[in-house]
Amino acid sequence: MEAILEAKNIRKYFKTPKGMLHAVDDVSFSIPKGKTLGVVGESGCGKSTLGLLLLHLESLTGGQIFFEGRDITNPGKRRLKELRCSMQMIFQDPFSSLNPRMSVSEIISEPFRIYKICRSPAEMEKKVDQLMDLVGLAPRLRQAYPHELDGGRRQRVGIARALAMAPKFIVCDEPVSALDVSIQAQILNLMQDLQKEMGLTYIFITHDLSVVRHISDEICVMYLGKIVEQARAQELFRNPLHPYTQALLSAIPRPKVPPATERIILKGELASPIEPKPGCRFAPRCIHAQDRCFQENPERREIGQGRFACCHCI
């Protein structure tokens, strides 16, 4: 399968008073066209920064990004504006990602005005209507303001805005985390329908493992700026290899009574991502950690077909 987007050893360090914060450290992956890559991890693992890097909403510290086979690491101003048509983003918080002073139709039509692609107001209106219909927003909401909408509808507005320029690739940063389960299911279904209909490729960033399993074809598990394991969604859940993935999966409270008895409870908390020590970042909390894990950085290795992990013990 042809990859639509490829990241090679991308890095993002932030300067802080205490030293360099390694938000994303040497991350590589590729996404085939029309598929969904899930990125899971806990807060502070760098998953959101990763999404922003791909869209050039943060600048890279190092590494390369390829989109449809072309190097877009340093796109230049004009190429960047073109890229923003084909690469879009859906944001986490439907409450703060919409300008409170703009109406629904103004928000959705803003891309048209930026790229000046509508010849008349009537044409623009027609396009807005089509988009609203596509994401399941009633036409009577055109003039509504974001504060008048509930979370699910706001997220639909955010999706419509992202779809306005008919993108090929969308970064979805926790798009359903702020929503209740029944609304969450509506939005997830919508996103899957849109993907099929328009052949979209998604990067789906979330901390929710059941959501990521549902929507993803392939999953990357991140820990402190590194991808520790990458596998097909079902493979990962059937047979997690990395000790962190194992602990993460075992930590999900499952809606089953009686609950599972066996579970791995990790010791301690996330270490600081500022000037991290050499060795495996997960070693301090790992039950299998050996001396080697504290000294040598584990390399990304291909374990099965299309399956990668960073661990000395596998």
């Binding site: 389960v181 029944s182 609304i183 969450q184 299911a185 509506q186 997830l188 279904n189 899957q192 493992l209 059941s210 959501v211 399993r213 549902h214 929507i215 079902q234 859940f237 999900i252 499952r254 809606p255």
Partner: peptide, 17 residues
């Protein structure tokens, strides 16, 4: 509520909101 939850074990194509 139960139906709307994504299932961790099954492989349902669509959720039932």
């Amino acid at each position: 509520l139960f139906g709307a939850l994504p299932d961790l074990e099954g492989s349902e194509e669509r959720l039932h909101p």
